[in-house]
Amino acid sequence: MLLKEIISALEAKTIVDFTTEPNKDYHWVCATDLMSDVLFYSTCQSLLLTGLAKTQTIRTATVADLSIIIFTRNNIPDDETIELARTKGISLFVTPFSTFTASGKLFTQGLQCCSDVNFTEED
């Protein structure tokens, strides 16, 4: 699913956008508020769907090589968090839907949970 299709499906608004590959296909989603789960289960090809709009979310995404975060239920991060995302080159979007509903919308479009997939290191 292309990012623009994901953004459209979630009726999401752009906070900061550093994406350079508009036609990149996304297959995996990491949907959680637990940053420990992000570190344990995510792959660098996932996009992060979360309600936790804090600086630690940006740092977690940075460490896990996740370049796109979609905040759910209109949880717009504060200026410090947005500025940190800018310095790390992480794109931020916000959707009015809850994490549950947003996950459902993406699931029905064929996206899968990142923890359901076994990746090798080279992936």
Binding site: C44, T55, Q56, R59, T62, V63, A64, D65, K88, E122
Partner: peptide, 28 residues
Amino acid sequence: NAGKASTELKTILTNCGLDIAKIRRAVI
């Protein structure tokens, strides 16, 4: 400041030219 040290370490290791997958494991 949670995660600040780890993200700084990532920058240092990246500048060293280490393998991306190994950097990811290290900083996680």
